[in-house]
Amino acid sequence: MNDILICLWSANGFDRATQGVIGAGRRLADTTGGQLHAVLIGAEDNTLVEATSLRADHVLVADRPELHEAQPELYLAVLTGICRSLQPRAVLLGSDVYSQELTPRLAHRLEGSSMADGAELTVAEGGALRVRRTAYGGRANAVYELGRQPAVVWLRARGFAPAEPIQDHHGTVTHLDIELPETITARIAERYIEARDGVPLEDAALVVSGGRGLGGPEPFEELRQLAAAIGAEVGASRVACDEGWVPASWQVGQTGKKIAPELYLAIGISGAAQHLLGIADAKVIAVINSDPDAPIFKHAAFGLVEDYRKVLPALTAKLAELATR
């Protein structure tokens, strides 16, 4: 089979990551000459069903009350069942935590292959899926060939271009009749969403970020003020999160958020390879750092070599003035 299956969570709606997965799936199906199937798990979202059916050949809605809130064990059962009947060439997922943890398990159940954090998909002669991704904490680019079928891959979803609706096309919509396991031994019992004003870090056009050089939690208040002056969101390096200066969900980097803002302003961040991996897709990187040899300068468009403490209040005031013009 040359068909491609994409796995989407209805709760996310038609967000940027979802659009990236649909785009990646559409183009891959066009390459293999197969059909694009999209399974939407969770409470049915008409907007998402409609948007997906304009871009995919078949939309499968998996809506049962038990699936309205994510339960990985149940999602895995649903996806395994669908894959066994569809026999897709490749299965694509997004970059959220459920996608990440389901990918190897689904591949194992289907005797396929899996790969994480795919940045580009191609098809080799002979039909095997090839996945480009980074290795060695962002220091190298690697291409893997996944010989076993299906190839199950979670994607760096926001890095994939969305697909336009296909002209005069409306994919089929099927409501699945699904059987779920009666008991599961691992269940999500509680959920905590961290209060965060503004847009999610991944969707922000402007990001101001702080690191080890800030020395503690207090200077992040100054970063927040600077960010407010230009309408930016605030992120952080791994050190700042590990030290507990800011929540872990603020982390930008290999093991944090991978973001693609128009401007990334790094303050007191040296630029470890694992951090740079998180901002590889940023359009412009600007730096304020007292160490002119900090590796991040090699990736920046413009910079200011200075102790941030001498810069911040004046910079914030200046930016507020320039923004109100």
């Binding site: 935590v97 509680e190 969403i193 093991t255």
Partner: peptide, 24 residues
């Protein structure tokens, strides 16, 4: 465990395999 927007608590009857990420 950490999610994109916060945390989740699983209730689990052992055994289980877990992958650990860094935290403060």
């Amino acid at each position: 465990r950490q999610t994109d927007t916060g945390t989740e608590i699983f209730e689990v009857t052992p055994p289980v395999v877990i992958s650990i990420t860094n935290s403060e």
